Simulated assay, not measured.
Amino acid sequence: MASFRKRGKTWEYRITYNDPITNKRREKPQGGFRTKKEAMIAAAEAELNINNQFIQKNDSITISEYLNIWFDTYKHTVKESSWGPRDDSMVIIKKHIGNIKVKNINTSMYQKFLNDIAPEYAKNTLKGVHDVFKMMTRQAMRDSYFKDYPLEGVRMPRTKDADKVMDDEKLKDIKFWEKEEISKFLQCVKRRGNPQDLAMFVLLVYSGLRIGEATALKWDKIDFEESVVRVRYTLYQKDGLRDNYMLLSPKTSSSIRNVPVPPQVSNQLKILKHVQNQVKMENEDQYKDEGFVFTDKTGRPIPARNFNYKLDTYIKKSGVTRITPHNLRHTYTSLLIDAEVKLKEAQERLGHSSSKTTLDIYSHIMKETKTEAIVQFNAVANEIF
């Protein structure tokens, strides 16, 4: 409702209305009109805009504040497995542009934001940020902060790919087991573990899968006839909870791949499948079969952190060098080098998006093992002359 008053030689109007975002009463004043009639005409137009929700609400609200408002609504419309991963994207947005006012969102500002953070994050991370910001902005448009969509024409920049950069510090962190340590570790798991643990670690050693890719595996992605494991997903589990999970796209597009595996892997997976069938029968009242390879007695996928813990446990029991699940990928790489697998094929098996990454790791591992090669070559030379 509008009220009018004369201030000096000009008139002004003041409209009071309820802000649907904050649920608070707000006022929209405007002055400088020569006559009351001009003020009344302008106020009528302003009230029409308010009724049509074409006003700019709460001019001082920031992106961080509006993100929270949007998220409180959004999370009630989807499953937690869908809104859970949005938290990380919101943290990134708030960190970089959270203090900017919503009314100042425009194409150039947002494009600059994407361009600035692209070198810091992988493609999937940047996509997640972009998805969240688009959803928030569309809601802001529905809430009448904009007449036109402010992100029109925005383009995704080239991103940092975590696989592409292998600096000296990362190379220093590359650890791997020699054949003797692999054997010692797996024999320990065989003696002191269970079929599921043995299947997992045999798989990681002889396939180079990331731990998240392994825990996401389903039986329909295991081709026993061709001895191939088809990597299509990685498993996300919020806070490592077994009943709060979802399948996500792998790290990069090149991570979607078919990995040939030796008979040892196929054999252990067949044994695990037989054991799993028995578990299903024993727990049929609570077993929910979603086709996962590595599960608990209810059919839920086992969190990656469980296998991280078990890796440490078996390492201590077997007395081998302490490494991480990711170092098992380097161990697999060392086996590819021993088998004289060509660089391009190794890149495809490991799911590296850049051949430079594979080459860096190849070179580093070969440097670590060059002493053995020198001894072998010298032995051959001695036999000749």
Rank of each mutant, 00 (worst) to 15 (best):
K9D: 11
Y13S: 03
T16P: 01
T16L: 06
Y17P: 08
D19E: 11
D19H: 00
I21R: 12
K28V: 14
G31V: 13
F33T: 09
T35H: 07
K36M: 15
K37G: 01
K37V: 11
A46C: 14
A46I: 10
K57N: 02
D59S: 10
I61L: 06
T62K: 07
I63V: 14
N68S: 12
I69Y: 15
D72A: 00
Y74F: 15
T77V: 02
W83G: 00
W83R: 05
R86M: 09
D88L: 01
I97P: 00
I97S: 02
I100M: 04
M109R: 11
P119I: 08
S144M: 08
K147P: 01
Y149T: 04
E152C: 02
P157N: 04
R158Q: 06
D161S: 05
L171G: 07
K172A: 05
K172G: 03
I174L: 06
F176N: 05
K179N: 03
R191E: 15
N194Q: 13
A199D: 11
A199N: 12
M200P: 09
V202R: 08
V205F: 13
Y206G: 11
L209V: 11
E213M: 10
K218T: 14
K221C: 12
R232Q: 08
Y245L: 01
M246H: 02
P260S: 03
P262C: 10
Q264F: 05
Q268A: 07
Y287P: 08
K288Q: 15
F292Y: 15
F294C: 06
K297S: 13
G299F: 02
P301A: 11
T313E: 08
K316Y: 02
L328N: 09
S334M: 03
I337L: 14
L343H: 02
E345D: 14
Q347I: 04
K356M: 14
T357D: 01
T358L: 10
H364N: 13
H364E: 12
M366Y: 05
K370S: 14
T371G: 04
I374K: 07
V375D: 07
Q376N: 14
N378Y: 01
